[in-house]
Computed example of a mutant assay.
Amino acid sequence: MDTTTSVREQILDHAITLIMMRGYNGFSYRDLSSLVGVKTSSIHYYFPSKDDLVLEAVSTYSSEVQSTLKGIDESLPAEVRLGKYTKLFGRTLGDGHQICLCGMLAADIETLPDNIRQAVQAFFKANEKWLAKVLAEGAQAGTLAVNGKAENAARALFAAFQGSVLASRLFNTKARLEDVEASVRIGR
Score class of each variant (00 low, 15 high):
T3F: 12
T5P: 08
S6N: 06
E9D: 14
E9V: 06
Q10F: 00
I11D: 04
L12D: 01
D13R: 13
D13G: 06
D13L: 07
H14P: 03
A15H: 03
A15C: 07
L18P: 01
M20L: 07
M20T: 09
M20V: 07
M21K: 15
R22E: 03
Y24N: 03
N25F: 06
N25S: 14
F27V: 10
F27I: 08
Y29H: 10
L35N: 04
L35K: 13
V36T: 08
G37M: 08
G37D: 05
T40V: 10
S41Y: 15
S42Y: 12
F47L: 04
P48A: 05
D51R: 03
D51S: 11
L53D: 07
V54M: 08
V54A: 09
E56P: 02
A57Q: 05
A57R: 02
V58G: 10
T60L: 12
S62M: 07
E64R: 13
V65R: 04
S67T: 10
T68H: 00
K70P: 02
G71N: 07
I72Q: 00
I72P: 04
E74P: 11
E74V: 12
S75D: 13
L76F: 08
P77M: 05
P77S: 09
A78Y: 02
A78F: 05
V80N: 04
V80E: 09
L82F: 04
K84L: 14
T86W: 05
T86P: 04
R91P: 02
T92H: 12
T92Q: 15
G94C: 06
D95V: 14
H97R: 15
Q98N: 04
Q98D: 01
Q98V: 08
I99S: 01
C100T: 06
L101K: 01
C102S: 10
L105T: 04
A106E: 11
D108G: 03
D108V: 09
I109H: 12
E110F: 13
T111S: 14
L112T: 03
L112K: 07
R117K: 15
Q118E: 15
A119Q: 03
V120C: 02
Q121W: 15
F123I: 00
F123E: 08
F124S: 10
F124D: 07
A126G: 07
N127C: 10
E128Y: 03
E128A: 11
E128F: 03
K129S: 07
W130C: 00
L131T: 10
A132D: 01
A132E: 02
K133R: 14
K133M: 09
L135E: 00
L135Y: 03
A136W: 00
E137R: 12
A139N: 12
G142K: 09
G142S: 10
G142I: 11
L144I: 06
L144T: 01
L144Y: 06
V146R: 01
G148W: 05
G148E: 06
K149C: 08
E151C: 06
E151D: 11
A154M: 06
A154V: 09
R155T: 06
A156L: 13
A156S: 12
A156Y: 12
A160Q: 09
F161Q: 01
G163C: 06
G163V: 10
A167K: 02
L170R: 13
N172I: 08
A175R: 13
R176L: 10
E178V: 05
E178I: 02
E181D: 03
A182R: 14
S183T: 00
V184N: 01
R185W: 04
R185S: 08
I186T: 11
I186P: 01
G187W: 07
